[in-house]
């Protein structure tokens, strides 16, 4: 009995120590976030969360589940996990009247072209890697390419 407790304690200490030592390693790519790499780093995620809480949370909700019949969910939908240029366009131009998995949503998603390319890259990376989503990050260059196309 005691031995198991001790073993568990040692394991948990080991895990927490490795977790702690891992953190600085993970931070490294953050410096490159605004360049070509689409790294999903804690820094990018933290910046994305700030944008989400400011402009997105009231409709899409804290859990990303949206509001039934009114505001679209952003949990594992093809819009969120699919083509990045199409997703960037939803932010830049808005969206309305699109059914998601057979359900319709009555409210419009307004255009958010006033956000900077950095803010859009951050918030999309955050959304694509939160609420149970897992997908590559979005870079400033990718947002700029879509915005400049017109």
């Amino acid at each position: 009995m005691k031995r198991t407790t001790l073993t568990l304690l040692i394991i948990s200490i080991f895990i927490s120590v490795t977790a702690q030592t891992k953190k600085p390693v993970a931070k490294k790519p953050a410096a490159k976030a605004s360049t070509a790499s689409a790294a999903v780093t804690p820094t990018v995620m933290a910046r994305g969360k700030v944008v989400y809480n400011m402009y997105c949370i009231s409709c899409h909700q804290p859990d990303g589940g949206g509001v039934p019949s009114m505001n679209a969910p952003i949990v594992k939908t093809k819009q969120v996990l699919g083509s990045k240029p199409a997703l960037i366009n939803i932010i830049l131009k808005g969206m309305s009247g699109v059914d998601i998995e057979g359900e319709s949503y009555s409210n419009v998603m307004p255009a958010h072209a006033f956000l900077t390319n950095q803010q859009i890259a951050d918030v999309l990376t955050y959304v694509r890697n939160n609420f149970g989503n897992k997908a590559s990050g979005v870079t400033v260059a990718e947002v700029a390419a879509v915005r400049n196309k017109k």
């Binding site: 402009y55 409210n107 419009v108 998603m109 307004p110 255009a111 958010h112 006033f114």
Partner: peptide, 8 residues
């Protein structure tokens, strides 16, 4: 002028 648009 633009429904649910910031500042519209």
């Amino acid at each position: 002028i633009k429904d649910r648009q910031m500042g519209s």
